[in-house]
Design a protein around this nucleic acid. Structure first.
Ligand SMILES: [Mn+2]
Ligand SMILES: [Mn+2]
Ligand SMILES: [Zn+2]
Ligand SMILES: [Zn+2]
Lengths: 147, 147
DNA sequence: ATTGATATTGACATTCATTATCATTTAGAA
DNA sequence: TTCTAAATGATAATGAATGTCAATATCAAT
């Protein structure tokens, strides 16, 4: 999606922020990256091509990406925030295997609608949500059954 | 529920763990406590009556309480785990106001059922879940509207 | 009640992800 | 080119959570 770059640049301009070499590098690395990664992981990936880039800047830029809706921060693991690419059209939630850590993505229109409904019933204006199902993935379930 | 104590004691006995003065104090403070609190908060509450109790022990005991299903660890805030009393019969999820931090509890049988269903569709065996809706509580929504 | 093996405790240190500091550099408008 | 506010990154700091370990407590067996 070539259009993510425009969103990012637009966000910067709108806020009077500057388009720096580092921000571009981080943006690119993030866009090309695999689905779920931590700030640290993105940082290590970046260092290969861009030595001298700072971890602080990675954190800061990731925050910017979240602000403009290109990234989403998740708590999949207990002691680390992971980031993933986000766009209004591919929203999903996660299942995580407590045995092997495998992450499965899912989307349920029905659940999303019910969330909306239950929030409003409480006078709440829902803006976002996090939903995580913990359990055993297919593989690990089979392995357990065999034993 | 006088029966929580029996569950806790039973859990200890079953695992060959010992029933200590500290564990009893922490158990009691937790049971009498307000709905959502952090280890640190429980620790401070305890120190009033039980000076000399250790924060480590609070963490350790809270883990035991989770193990036997009397407590549940939540990520309501971004940088702190909060604990709440849990029992099979009053399971619920949470809405949290991004403005004032207010926490609203809710339960939807329909959502729970759909979670079960979607997990199985992915070959997943669901064991637990965390669901959090972020938004504006009634109060804060009104305040925003007036302004 | 005594014993003794084993679990527990808590002060303290440590870890580790994330954030703050701040002197230096840079973007970008004029 | 100049100027000013923003950005950077090395480094230190923060803070929740966990590890360490000598001293202590529990409890089953005697
Ligand atoms: Mn995902
Ligand atoms: Mn609750
Ligand atoms: Zn698995
Ligand atoms: Zn509120």
């Amino acid at each position: 999606m070539e259009n993510a770059a425009r969103i990012f640049e637009g966000h910067l301009k709108l806020r009077g922020l500057k388009s720096t070499r580092q921000r571009q590098a981080i943006f690119n690395a993030f866009i090309e990256s695999s689905v779920h990664l931590s700030a640290e992981e993105l940082y290590r990936k970046l260092r290969k091509k861009n030595p001298g880039i700072g971890l602080s800047t990675v954190y800061r830029t990731l925050k910017l990406l979240c602000d403009c809706g290109l990234a989403r921060a998740l708590q999949l693991d207990d002691n680390m925030v992971t980031f993933e690419k986000e766009s209004k059209r591919d929203h999903h939630d996660h299942m995580v295997c407590r045995e092997c850590g495998r992450i499965e993505e899912f989307y349920s229109k029905a659940i999303e609608d019910l969330q909306e409904r239950v929030a409003k019933k409480h006078g709440f204006i829902p803006e976002d949500h996090r939903m995580k199902i913990i359990g055993l993935c297919k593989e690990c379930a089979r392995r357990k059954a065999e034993k």
